[in-house]
């Protein structure tokens, strides 16, 4: 008899220790809602994180959870998923965890296409170490470690993921609750490494980092909600994205001029298109949200297990006797 799970079933008994007002609360809540909508049995759900504020996430989910070490969640998740492919493994990480100390592992887990849901909370700051700039902080940012402004050019996480040949790249915002859940559903449905960048507000050390995009009054103008197969239009239908050669451009729509049909159509499966739109950034462009790219490619854990099964089917399962007596042997009487 299978039981039914409610959102509450995914809440652990631990007191949540994020700062009041932190964007992480919303993400936790959306994820718990999605888990219940998907009816993932709590025993088959594993949340694996690295280090940072976001990485406290597993403690608050009533499932199996592993709060690992800085930057290494992808490695532990890879070992687990390869050897236990039936589990639903979600990885929670942050901009520093995934793109700075763990950048190498992020690159490789994406190219290998291990079937994980990777939620990257991007707040453009180091929160847990109390306010140093992160690899996604804007250049020139003044922080505790950069009193005269940071010198580093920031990463664009989605472009990074596409550069790693990720098979699923999406972007959403902590306060866009419905869109966030939609993206999580899509990430779960995708077989392979699903990379989800979530713009998240750190109200203590980098408050308002995303306000320019996400404030209700400006949102329409500055965010482009992507829908597969539909033209890229925003600002309530008044503006669209058109391709001029290989470069996108913002065009005004309506009044005898251009219409939606003149705009670029979103095709999630096209890696070339993904490369173009992932780079669109405020203020020149609206920032694309939703599923930027999604395509099928065999997953790593399936390939690994199939290879073992193929060898066993061909040459039989190994026995201890065979193992010990392999190679040339001789007898001494």
């Amino acid at each position: 008899m299978s039981r039914t799970y409610t959102k509450k079933d995914y809440m652990s008994d631990q007191i949540i220790r994020w700062c009041p007002g932190c964007g992480d609360y919303s993400i936790l809540s959306q994820a718990q809602t999605v888990f219940s909508e998907l009816q993932i049995p709590t025993e088959n759900l594993v949340v694996i994180s690295g280090i940072g504020c976001s990485s406290r996430f597993p403690y608050y989910v009533n499932s199996y959870g592993f709060h690992t070490i800085h930057g290494r969640a992808a490695t532990i998740a890879t070992g687990l998923k390869m050897s236990r492919p039936e589990l639903s493994v979600w990885m929670v990480t942050g901009d520093g965890d995934a793109l700075s100390i763990g950048g190498n592992h992020t690159a490789h887990v994406l190219r290998r296409n291990v079937d994980l849901q990777i939620l990257l909370f991007n707040n453009r700051i180091y929160g847990l170490t109390k306010g140093q700039y992160s690899p996604t902080s804007e250049q020139g940012k003044k922080t505790k470690s950069t009193p005269f402004g940071s010198l580093d050019h920031p990463f664009n996480p989605a472009a990074f993921a596409l550069g790693c040949d990720a098979t699923f790249v999406a972007r959403t915002v902590d306060i866009f609750t419905k869109d966030q859940r939609d993206v999580m559903h899509a990430a779960y449905a995708h077989k392979g490494a699903s990379f989800v960048e979530i713009y998240q507000n750190c109200n203590i050390f980098n408050d308002g980092a995303w306000d320019a995009l996400t404030e209700k009054v400006t949102r329409e103008e500055r965010v482009l909600m992507l829908k597969h197969g539909e033209p890229m239009i925003f600002a309530g239908g008044r503006k669209g994205i058109r391709l001029n050669g290989l470069r996108p451009e913002v065009v005004e729509l309506g009044e005898g001029g251009l219409g939606p049909d003149d705009c670029l159509k979103h095709d999630e499966t096209d890696p070339y298109l993904a490369a173009i739109i992932a780079r669109m950034d405020f203020p020149e462009f609206p920032v694309p949200m939703g599923v930027i790219h999604r395509r099928e490619r065999p997953t790593y854990e399936v390939l690994a297990n199939e290879q073992i099964e193929a060898v066993q089917a061909r040459s039989g399962k190994g026995t201890l006797q065979k193992l010990l007596l392999g190679g040339e042997t001789w007898k001494v009487d």
């Binding site: 690992t68 992808a74 490695t75 532990i76 070992g79 687990l80 998923k81 050897s83 236990r84 589990l87």
Partner: peptide
Amino acid sequence: GSAIGASYG
């Protein structure tokens, strides 16, 4: 890391 993940599993 992968070995630890596998042991965990």
